[in-house]
Amino acid sequence: MNIEAHLATLEKKHGALEEELHSALTRPSVEDEYIATIKRRKLRLKDEISKIRSTTH
C-alpha cells in the first residue's frame, strides 16, 4: 500500500471514530470509559497521521 492510500485509510478510520464518539456523547447511558477509549484511539490515529505527513513532506 502506498503512503497516500495508507493516509486515506487512517483518515477514514479517524472520521468513523469521530462519528462513533459523537453518537456515544448523545446517549446518556454510555460509560465514561467507553468514551475515553474512543478518544484514545482517535488520538493514536491522529498522531500516526501527523507522523506520516511530517516524514513525507
Rank of each mutant, 00 (worst) to 15 (best):
I49P: 05
R44Q: 15
K13C: 02
E48V: 08
D32M: 03
A36Q: 15
K46I: 01
R41N: 15
S29W: 08
A36G: 01
E4Q: 12
E4T: 10
H14G: 03
L25K: 15
I35R: 08
S54T: 13
T9R: 11
L21D: 01
A8G: 10
E33L: 06
I35L: 00
I38T: 07
E19I: 05
I35W: 06
L45S: 11
M1W: 14
A5E: 15
E48T: 14
S29P: 01
A16F: 09
L43E: 14
K12D: 10
K13W: 02
M1R: 14
L45Y: 13
T56N: 03
N2C: 08
K12M: 11
E48N: 12
K46E: 10
E48C: 10
D47M: 08
M1T: 14
A24H: 04
K51Y: 11
K12F: 09
A8R: 15
K42D: 06
G15V: 02
T55S: 12
P28F: 06
Y34L: 13
D32I: 08
A8Q: 13
I52C: 04
L10T: 02
L10D: 04
E19Y: 03
E31R: 07
K51W: 06
S50Q: 14
D32E: 01
E33Q: 11
H14E: 05
I3Q: 10
H6N: 08
S50F: 05
L17H: 07
R27W: 00
I35T: 08
E19Q: 07
I3W: 00
E19C: 00
K39P: 13
D32Q: 00
A5G: 10
K39W: 04
R53W: 00
E18F: 04
K46R: 14
L21Y: 00
Y34K: 14
R27D: 05
V30P: 02
K12P: 03
D32K: 02
R41L: 13
R44I: 11
E20V: 02
V30C: 02
E48K: 15
L25W: 00
A36D: 10
R40P: 01
E48D: 09
R53D: 03
K42C: 10
I52F: 03
T37E: 11
H57I: 04
Y34W: 09
L17G: 03
E33T: 06
T9F: 08
A5P: 11
G15N: 05
A16Y: 08
R53Y: 01
A24Y: 04
S23D: 14
P28N: 07
K39D: 09
K12Q: 13
S23R: 14
I52K: 05
H57P: 03
E11S: 04
S29R: 02
E18K: 02
T56Q: 00
N2S: 10
A24G: 00
S23Y: 10
A24N: 03
L10K: 09
E20H: 05
Y34E: 10
H14M: 11
D47W: 05
E4W: 09
L43N: 08
D32L: 01
T37G: 08
I52G: 05
S23P: 02
S54R: 14
E31P: 12
T56F: 03
L43K: 15
E20G: 04
K51A: 12
H14P: 01
E4F: 13
R40F: 13
A36Y: 06
A24I: 02
A16L: 12
L45M: 00
K39Q: 15
M1P: 15
E31Q: 11
S50W: 06
R53V: 04
A8W: 07
